[in-house]
Nucleic acid binder design. Structure first.
Lengths: 200, 200, 200, 200
DNA sequence: AATGAATGAGAATTCATTCAT
DNA sequence: TATGAATGAATTCTCATTCAT
């Protein structure tokens, strides 16, 4: 008597997510090129062949990881529906970004190593563009609402500082005083401070 | 008539720097893993075997590129001897950093892809630490001189925003409005603006 | 109410022949090596595991196809019981061969790709020998009855020309003027023509 | 001191032809799919990697074998420049074909296994078409010159019988009475016999 | 110093076959 | 009987590194 469709689906779901989980861990720690399918299979406790039952190539595993994260990541940016106050939105954007990175540091470490790797850019490019454009647009909208001069440039700087800090945090991990930096940033982008530089 | 020792040394030096130059170009465009020794040798117009006469491994080529750049890079940070005015120093730091990245974008593109790749971190770690610490110290010193509260955190933010912008610039290249962003940043870190936030 | 044994047997027989039918189609179109058990199972609408319930290996499927066809093929050759006239028999042999190939071109295309593949010859050798010998004997008998000199060599030539034309037809398919060639061949082996060359 | 260009060229030439020679032998005896690069390298006494220094893929080895043989094979067909007499040409065509096959049986055995294999047909198709068309044209020309009715159909039959006999010979090798068959065929296509069937 | 042929240790991928249910 | 997840051995291909000359 064969297993039921549900049972099979469950099995697949479980194995699939183990593969993705372990692959992410390895990609983040050893790099994409430094990780072999063998590594992933061993770590996931399955055979090399089985990995190919789930993903047609190593690239497809990466693709799946990125796709999964893309959805989650875009959600973070979506602060406009949480508040109408642009100052509050700004605060939320910063807070949620820091939160997200701290909770998903493996993913972002992996992603950072890939982002500028030209050979893989067909996989990452879509991600970066979709994500980046989305973040920028959101930030620009906020700055416009606040009434800051040159909202586009100001957005580039905010996104820059966020990404820069993320980069440093990913590299130095626990040695990086992420909390202090976050608070300072929140102050810099608080209503009081922004009022001062509105006309800059 | 045998060549003089000088001539030999000169030739070696020249070949060596051609290898490094071509390797950097390839690493930046195709990634470290995507570039083979063969590629480098072909591009440099020498044989594969000869490349090993100059560098004992592919890693050693990378090492040499990084070492070379480290020296040049550290020079950029050294703004304290150009002026005694901390505001002027800050301006110089920003201007020189942007200049440096624009003139050495291949190097930084390559470096970015490597920085977070743990397998190569024995090579890059030294670089990052030396460079990063140096930059931080310099920036902290300036902020202290200016009398800003929390100079360490402020320095982390400045270094963050610089690195973030560099990252975006490296990724988007000519599509990135680097000039506008630079000017905005210079304003943000000008005497007038800093006076306002001194007590932040 | 359990199904009767008859019903079960019938179902098995049906599934078995679906497998063989689909396998033949795939072998003919993608080659034996180019066809996976998965392909066959999918095409047959069953699971991979079930295929192994019917055949113990991929080779066994091939074996079964060949065996099935062997029986049908041998029937074609059996012209002696349809007429006593050797000229009529010759005509029938040619006509039936052409008919058979046109109706079973998938089978013969598959078979041709296999015939000279030594690794599979343990499977095909029996087939070729049994079939070939049979055809030859039949042809020799006819030529002897007609009274042609060197009936063995003549038979080799007739079998040769038939197989050669089949090969060309299988390769060129609809582009090959099979009808014209058949008619010409029938003339060449007609009573009138054979009388002329009897003493050749 | 490096080897001279000549020395390198010689080395390459030698290794290359060993690879091709051994590959042909293996392809003919074990089939294309039944032969691994490892087999070829072992047989050729070189490392697997070196084989890839000479040919970029297993397909490329096959391609090279076919290309080499194509040139040689086309030469065989070129009987028109050896004599102006169409009867003599016909005789030469038959004799040279038999000779060629006997001397190159490995090649033709390999080729036969490939010809109808759809997956490889992009490699073999060109060969078959070029070769087949050439042979046909040559034969048609001869039959036209002789003044036979339906020279095209007659050519299809001659080419058919030749290919059929080749096929049988390749399969049965020494058990096949190739000499007798050749002589009988020469008689069938001699001036005397053709005169008889001219009007057929 | 210089060449490029040669090696060999992996890497990704495929697929016939087995197995637990 | 039936399913498809799981295995593992084999296969193609890559490339840093060595070596003979």
């Amino acid at each position: 008597m064969p297993r039921s469709k549900e049972q099979f689906k469950e099995m697949r779901e479980k194995t699939r997510s183990i593969i993705l989980e372990k692959a992410l861990l390895l990609f983040a720690n050893k790099g994409f090129h430094g990780t072999s399918i063998n590594d992933i299979a061993n770590e996931a406790g399955i055979s090399k062949g089985l990995a190919y039952n789930y993903f047609e190539s190593k690239d497809a595993i990466l693709q799946a990881i990125i796709d999964t994260a893309l959805t989650a990541g875009l959600e973070v940016m979506n602060v406009s529906k949480l508040s109408d106050d642009p100052y509050k939105q700004l605060e939320l954007l910063i807070v949620k970004t820091f939160d997200h990175i701290q909770k998903n540091d493996n993913y972002w470490r992996m992603f950072s190593t890939l982002m500028l790797q030209p050979k893989l850019s067909n996989i990452t490019e879509k991600m970066v563009n979709e994500f980046g454009t989305n973040a920028m647009n959101e930030t620009i909208k906020i700055f416009k609402k606040i009434g800051i001069r040159n909202p586009e440039t100001e957005a580039l700087i905010l996104d820059g500082v966020l990404d820069g800090i993320i980069l440093h945090y990913l590299f130095f991990k626990d040695k990086y005083p992420i909390k202090k930096v976050k608070n300072k940033l929140l102050k810099k982008y608080s209503r009081e401070e922004l009022e001062k530089i509105k006309v800059l």
